[in-house]
Design a binder for these strands. Structure first.
Lengths: 218, 218
DNA sequence: TTGCAGGACGAACATCTGTTCGCTACACTG
DNA sequence: CAGTGTAGCGAACAGATGTTCGTCCTGCAA
């Protein structure tokens, strides 16, 4: 059951308005997506409601989002041996995921976004304790800003052969300064060994995003 | 410039409605506080707006709270030697504080409240690293649920002679099982020593609240 | 007493807003 | 071709909603 193009447009318009702190009317939503008749918008709203994306009270400005305002929890990530994260490696499903993930932490993304565009944050549940030295415990929710690279020494969510792990990112040149670049994924726990990977090797290493924050609820 | 009783009532009514996920109208607010005329409510809203508590758009359901929906940051707390927390020991200013604190983390309190009544959570900025063993770092924002006692072994914000510190709470009977009860405040860092206090002694020890969560933004 | 300010009421008004109805257009299917 | 479903438009309507106006009451100071 996927959304039509227009339904997706309307849903995103509502999310955009809500992120601005507004509570839209039917006609305002219509104006956002270029629909002149409130009746047309209403048909779409009804469909979105049936699909479970909205609640509609019937009163004025009665459209309520069921998701899309917090930070989506898109899966789990290993602090230890890499485990599969929800949408790892599935770039196509990614957009859908970020908007309509199964679960969401009702936290204003602005808490973790310093001036960056909204919508690029995801949360991952930590499994394992290889990062306790950085104050990241088993069960914590780490906030990851999606980006393809990170700086030397930053903590990153990294995909190793499609499986996610949370480690400190270090890049070290091979011998002689011109050899194959290497990546070292360093844990923050003496009981774990760093993972070293030659980039020209057979293992696939990709930065999924940068660690920008953490939420713990006990 | 403090609020009149009626203004306070109205402000709290709005906060209550917003916490329920509603966006109130002038008349709905009036109904909450027992005012029959929308004109009366509007005068109060205008005053609250001038006092900086609200924004009013003029459109329908156009009342916006400037604070009161997130978790208030009421001060700093030591993970190390006790330091003064914002409203420590000032029970009278407490209610005002919790509603209208200087700063607020825009986080749904429900994230940290499991079934408990809303409004009793505060956030404190951690200073020091005596709790790194529990994954609580310098600069973290700890979420504290206000309560007068905690269970043995739980982490608590404790007031020692009016100054706040974050430690693991342990109660130990004095010699012979009937001696003066003692309190031990145990840090989670080998470089710090526990604080031991005899309850019958001259030092004032009070639990400020229980550590229920943490937010870190880097 | 007079005057004034705060608080409250009810009525009235102009929009705003959700909703409904009828109509058209297009793509697809039989 | 007729039938069906989706998408769109404009008009109209009833109720919701912010706003304004005039009035009344009470407490307080001059």
């Amino acid at each position: 059951m996927s959304l039509t193009e227009k339904q997706r447009q309307i849903l995103e318009a509502i999310i955009e308005l809500v992120r601005r702190g507004e509570v839209p009317t039917v006609r305002e939503i219509g104006a956002m997506v270029g629909l002149r008749s409130s009746a047309t918008v209403q048909k779409h709203l009804e469909n979105l409601r049936e699909a479970g994306y909205l609640e509609v009270t019937g009163k004025s400005r009665g459209v309520r989002l069921r998701r899309g305002v917090g930070i989506p929890v898109v899966g789990r990530i290993a602090a230890g041996e890499p485990i599969e994260s929800h949408d790892a490696g599935d770039a196509d499903a990614d957009d859908e995921f970020r908007l309509f993930g199964f679960e969401e932490v009702p936290v204003d993304p602005g808490v973790f976004n310093s001036g960056t565009a909204p919508g690029e944050l995801v949360a991952l549940r930590v499994r394992g304790d290889s990062m306790v030295g950085a104050g990241i415990l088993d069960g914590d929710l780490v906030i990851i800003r999606r980006q393809p690279t990170v700086e030397e020494g930053e903590i990153a969510a990294v995909l190793v052969d499609g499986e996610g792990t949370l480690k400190r990112w270090q890049r070290c040149r091979g011998r002689g300064g011109r050899g194959a670049a290497r990546v070292r994924l360093r844990p923050e726990n003496d009981r774990f060994e760093p993972i070293e990977i030659s980039e020209s090797g057979h293992r696939d290493v990709r930065v999924y995003g940068k660690y920008v924050g953490l939420i713990r609820c006990r």
